[in-house]
């Protein structure tokens, strides 16, 4: 979007654009000031976005930039009739890995299902239980630890921090009544990976050299640096550490 194109737009459209780029336009601003401020804000926004991206992704996004800022191209605005349902009114739970320490959960509970328990038990709570497992297949005996997150019925998605790298996790959607927990759904089991080279005591010098030449920090340094990063240690092991 060039200055020239902005100059062709009406005042009303310019003020809307200003809002869109996060600018609080003032009534006393002249048209020129408004246009210049929009251009500056867009430039700032663009450089912020670009700095967030890694090189490959940045390159890829260039393929899609035939105009300078398509945000302002209104010709493909989504039709109103294309509004999607907020939910599908079903019992569902999906668990995806965002990275090695964060998961993304999508959930829903069917109205009639929820209603039935509410009628029978009065106050009920919805719980997301994050379970850490020994293995990639869920077995009760393989549960290492778990924690519960109380959620609102309206909540349909959540990012969850997974405390440990190199572990297995699944999530359960639980309906808690006054006297029991009802399992609504259990997700797939996902493995969190380590975010560093796997240092093993006694690794030889050659291995350390090749790790460094491969573009990764010295194994010992990286182990120390990463050890407690994003980690929530269980209370008992914290005692051991001290």
């Amino acid at each position: 979007m060039t200055k020239e194109r902005l100059e062709l737009l009406s005042d009303e459209v310019l003020h809307n654009l200003a809002k869109k780029v996060g600018l609080k336009s003032k009534a006393e601003w002249s048209r020129i000031t408004l246009i210049n401020s929009i251009i500056d804000a867009m430039e700032e926004e663009r450089s912020e976005t670009e700095s967030l991206l890694n090189l490959a992704i940045s390159m890829e996004s260039k393929k899609y930039s035939v105009t300078i800022d398509e945000e302002l191209d209104f010709s493909y605005d989504v039709d109103e009739e294309m509004e999607f349902p907020h939910r599908y009114n079903e019992n569902m739970l999906h668990f995806m890995l965002r990275d090695n320490s964060w998961g993304f959960v999508l959930l829903d509970i069917k109205n009639s299902f929820y209603q039935q328990y509410q009628n029978d038990f009065g106050d009920i709570e919805l719980i997301l239980r994050v379970i850490e497992l020994e293995d990639s297949i869920y077995k009760k005996d393989d549960i290492i630890d778990y924690f519960d997150i109380q959620i609102e019925k309206v909540e349909k998605a959540r990012y969850i921090n997974l405390p440990n790298e190199e572990s297995f996790y699944c999530v359960e959607l639980i309906l808690r009544t006054s006297n029991r927990d009802v399992l609504v759904n259990r997700s797939q089991v996902l493995a969190t990976s380590r975010n560093h080279v796997n240092y093993i005591m006694g690794d030889n010098d050659k291995l350390k050299t090749i790790v460094k030449l491969s573009g990764f920090s010295n194994v010992e340094d990286s182990y120390v640096a990463q050890k407690n990063y994003n980690r929530i240690l269980p209370i008992d092991s914290m005692e051991e550490e001290s």
Partner: peptide
Amino acid sequence: PLIMKTGTTVPYATKRVKTHIL
């Protein structure tokens, strides 16, 4: 989702996902 994240042609990407789903 890449376009939605990077901010280029977002309306087009949104429309494409929605159109195929619909």
